[in-house]
Design a protein around this nucleic acid. Structure first.
Lengths: 199, 199
DNA sequence: AACCCAACCGAGTACTCACTCGGTTTTTTT
DNA sequence: AAAAAAACCGAGTGAGTACTCGGTTGGGTT
């Protein structure tokens, strides 16, 4: 592994665990064994390190989801929604660093006056909500999901719900896993036909 | 207003808008007109300022909710749930500073080795989830909410959903207000009888 | 009028910060 | 093997950082 990759890897861990501002270049130098001069040889500024990491996070999340969706065969749209929610929770556990980074304030503050950062963040969230919406649309075609629900807005609501649970987990308030069954049940209720009994 | 209160007020704004670490005592001194010596006369450390603010936030949120609940007369438990959700969104807009503070990482990191901070945070979330749960319990007694849903866990799910939407709003990703109708509709679906048609 | 004490001041302190620069080592190219 | 380029080093810099300390002010009590 090249020194640049070592720096990226260590910075990913430190930025997500301690925060961007709370991590000094001196510490980064210490844990990587790279001199400060070396760090600034590979990256123009400390902010530049962060943007490299965010790029990795964006590409990593999108890649993971695309692989998951194209590998798994879903019975129908509702099944896909359940799978996608499960995978989001699973990924938030396996790649905790990525999600810790995304649940900090720094990226969103940087995004306010850095178009590259904003593009990465929007890329991540647009992709995720798109996937949730696609599951709903598929479900509406194959009749596993109520045609009455607005697909985009409902996708956002469900994403907010899942993401909110991940937030609780990352902040050590509740264990998201303990609510998994209720989460899936709630999701089913939101998406099912409201008047299916009339048939 | 005493100088101490001026400091608290300015620090609340700065800590929520810029962050704790990103706000220097020098800046706080500048915007309040108080000398740095004065700030450290009233507060032992910078962290001490933050704890004073968090105390205010906790007491403020709990007070606001208690007043709302005891003032409004709800038709039934489901109506109460709708009211509480609306009030949470309303308060997150009116007292944006409080919620920005609570949606940063700093409080939760401080809570890891500061029992006072942890107590404040737990106090806030316990109180809020308690209120959500109480609405569900009331609804299950007056038959406006399905008896089959587990009250505590469902309260957490709905709270995660609402809080997740507030998070999106605070991070300038989506406007929570635009999803208000879908939020209430989804909540109704989660709480209503799942087999009402069989009656 | 003498005293008191909390409120207030701001220059000073020891330290950390991101970043630079001149030079050395290692790798690649010719 | 010589030359060019890239990777790497670490002491140094100047601008912050939280916090201290010796001293001044001003309203209230005796």
């Amino acid at each position: 592994m090249s020194k640049k990759q070592i720096i990226i890897k260590a910075a990913t861990r430190l930025f997500s665990e301690k925060g961007f501002k709370e991590t000094s270049v001196a510490e980064l130098s210490k844990v990587t064994g790279a001199a400060e001069g070396t760090i600034f040889h590979h990256f123009k500024t400390k902010e530049d390190i962060f943007l490299s990491i965010l790029k990795n996070v964006k590409e990593g999340i999108i890649e993971e989801f695309e692989e998951y969706i194209h590998t798994r065969a879903f019975d129908n749209g509702l099944d896909m929604m359940e799978g996608v929610i499960s995978f989001y929770l699973y990924l938030a556990g396996r790649m905790e660093e990525w999600f810790l980074l995304l649940h900090r304030h720094y990226p969103y503050e940087l995004a306010m006056d850095n178009p590259v950062c904003r593009e990465y963040l929007e890329g991540i969230y647009t992709c995720l909500v798109d996937i949730f919406e696609e599951a709903i649309s598929r479900g509406q075609k194959d009749a596993s999901i109520d045609n009455g629900v607005p697909s985009r807005k409902t996708a956002m609501i469900i994403f907010a719900m899942v993401n909110g649970l991940v937030w609780f987990k990352l902040h050590h308030l509740y264990e998201a896993g303990a609510l998994y069954n209720e989460l899936i049940a709630s999701c089913h209720k939101i998406l099912r036909e409201s008047d299916e009994c009339k048939k």
